[in-house]
Design a protein around this nucleic acid. Sequence first.
DNA 1: TTGTAAGCGTTATCAA
DNA 2: TTGATAACGCTTACAA
Lengths: 346, 346
Amino acid sequence: MSKKKVTIKDVASHAGVSVAAVSYVLNGKAHKVSEETIGTIYESIKALNYIPSISARGLVKNTSELIGVIIPQTEEHKQLVFQNPFYSEMISSIESVVREYGYHIILAGVEKGKSYLDISISRNLDGAIIMGVYPEKLYEECKEADIPIVLIDSYIHDDYFTNVGIDDELGGYLATKHLIDNGHRHIAIVTGMIRRDGVVEKRFLGYKRALQEAGLFYNPDYVFEHSVTFDHGFKAGGHIARNNPDITAVFATADLVAFGVIRGLMENGNSVPQDVSVIGFDDIAWAGMLYPPLTTVKQSIAQKGERAARLLIEQLRSTDKKSTEGTHSLLPLEIVERSTVRKLNG
Amino acid sequence: MSKKKVTIKDVASHAGVSVAAVSYVLNGKAHKVSEETIGTIYESIKALNYIPSISARGLVKNTSELIGVIIPQTEEHKQLVFQNPFYSEMISSIESVVREYGYHIILAGVEKGKSYLDISISRNLDGAIIMGVYPEKLYEECKEADIPIVLIDSYIHDDYFTNVGIDDELGGYLATKHLIDNGHRHIAIVTGMIRRDGVVEKRFLGYKRALQEAGLFYNPDYVFEHSVTFDHGFKAGGHIARNNPDITAVFATADLVAFGVIRGLMENGNSVPQDVSVIGFDDIAWAGMLYPPLTTVKQSIAQKGERAARLLIEQLRSTDKKSTEGTHSLLPLEIVERSTVRKLNG
DNA sequence: TTGTAAGCGTTATCAA
DNA sequence: TTGATAACGCTTACAA
C-alpha cells in the first residue's frame, strides 16, 4: 500500500553504479567520480525523486542536523511560555537563520523532573539554544551532553557555554534613571521572581543603583515580585492604584508585565501617564502598537535570536568546536520614549 | 576527548546478556525475559545512564517520533509569522500534547520554491500539522509523503486529510450580525487576502450574508483587503477615519488586525467605540488584556491546537492509520462582548 | 574512477 | 528464556 521509499540503493542501481558513487556525489566528494557518472547519477536522483535520510546519515556521521531550543514553560499547564511574545519573536529569528544552514529546530519545554539530557542524547542534537534561567542542575546536564550550547539571557559563569544577552543591570539602571530624570521620586518595580543569576535580578540591581545614585530611598514595599505575566502586572497595578498613591512611576521588567500594570492602574481609576508613569523592558513588537504606546527599554529581540543562532552554527561548523565558547556577547540597549512616562514638575 | 556514547551493546555487556535481551526489556516485550535478567538489565541501564538513540531505532522501525508543524511565514523576511500570537498559542498547545506521547515538534516554515516533501521525507516525519492555507501544490506533495496529516484552518476538500477548524462563514456572519444588531448600517471589513478555500474568504462570505439578510447594501469600497498584519489594520483604520466618515463599524477578520484598526482610528482623531465600533476575530490572549478590551469572535485557539494534536496522535497510534481520516471537526464559536462595540441609537 | 564491505545503534527473526 | 545475526539507509576506508 504505502509507497516504498527510495533509497540510495535504488538510485545506484537505476544509474548502474555503486552506492558509494552516489554517496560521493551527494557529499561533495565528486572529485572521486567522473563527470559522466555524476551526470547520470543526478539524473537518476531526479528521476526517482530521491531524498536522503537524515537519520541514516546521522547514524554514521553522528549528527542530526537538529538544534534543540529550550524555552521555559508555565508551572501549571506545562505549556510553553508563549504568552510572552518575547519568545516567539526570538524563536522566529532563530529558526530562520538555522534553516539557512539546513538545520531544523526542535522545540521543547523542560519538565520539572525530567532531564534535558534525555532529549539531547536520544535525539542526538547537534547543538542547543537555551533561553532563560533554570535550576543549576540543568546546566550540569548540559555540559554532559557535550554539544555546543548557547545560552540566551543567562548569567551562568562557565566557559563551557557561549552566552548572548544584554547588560540587564544597565537596562534596569537606564529605565529607572529615565524615570528619575523625569522627576519621579517614588518608583515601584514590578517583576518576575528575582533569582540568582537571572536577568531579573540584574535589572533589579540596576534599579537600586539608579535609586542610590540619585540619593533616593530604596523601599522594599515598592517591589512587586511574582511572575513574568500580564496577570501579575495587572494585580500589582491595581494594588498600586488603590494603596500606594505616593508612587508616581513604575518600572516593569518586561513589556508584558508593563501592559498588565497599565491595565491594572486604569481599571482602578488611574490614568497613564497622567497619574502614574510606566516604563517597560524588551520592546516587543506590540509595545509601540498598542495603546498607550509603551515607553520601554529596547533590546533587539530578533537580533538576539539571530546572534545566538549564528554563534551556534559557527561552533557547529568550525572543526575545533571551541571557537566561540565562553564568549559573552552583549547586545545594545536603548530607551525608546513613547507615551507612558510623563515629566513631573518640580 | 568527547565522551563516548553508551550504546545498547555497552548495556548488554555490562549486564552480561545479549543486546537482544536489552532491546526486549526496552520495548515492553519483557515477557520474553526472566524477571531476574530484567532486574540486572535495568540496573545496568541506570548505572551506565543509557538512553536509546531515536534515530537508530527509527531506522529500523521507520519512525522518527517527530511531528512536523508547518506555519506560514512572512513574504519578505522568511520569518515565521509569529507577529500573530494566534500561532504561538496554538503551537504551545500542540507541543504540550504531543510531548505527552513522546513526540517532539519540528517547526518549519515552507519556503516559496522549496517543497514540504523534502523535510517530511528526509526527516522521516511520523505526521504533520499544517496551519493555514498554501498553494495547491503543497497539498499534493503532502499526500505523496504518505503520512497522517491534519490541517488546521483549511478548506481543502480531500479525504486524505483530517481537518480541524471552525465555521468561519458563521463566524463572519456572527460578527457582522452583532454589529448590525447594535444598529450599525455602514460596516467595513478589513482583512487579509481573500483567497479561495481560505478562512478569510469564508469570513468574508459570512459578512456578506449578514449584510444581505439585513437588507444592507454591500459596498466594495468598504472592504480593505491586504494582509493579516497590524500594519494593514492600522492603515485601513487611518483611511477610514480620514475618508469614510459614514462607516460606523468595522469587522476585522483577526484580532491582530483589529488592534491595528483601532490604533489607526485613534491616531486620526476617532475614538473607539464612540466614533466607530470594531469587532475582531480569534480572541487571542491579548484581546481582553489590552486597551480597549476588544469585542471579538472567540474561537478557542488552544483547544484547536490540542484537538489537532490529539487527532494526529490517534492516527499515529491506530494500526490502520485511517481512523480519523477525512474528519472535519468544527470547534465552537462565540461572540465575546468587551468594549469596542457601541450600540447606535435609531 | 569505481566498487566492496564494514559499521553507525537499533529491532526483530530465528535458532538454540 | 536467551542469543546470534540480518536488516534499516547511509558514509567511508580500502581494494580493485
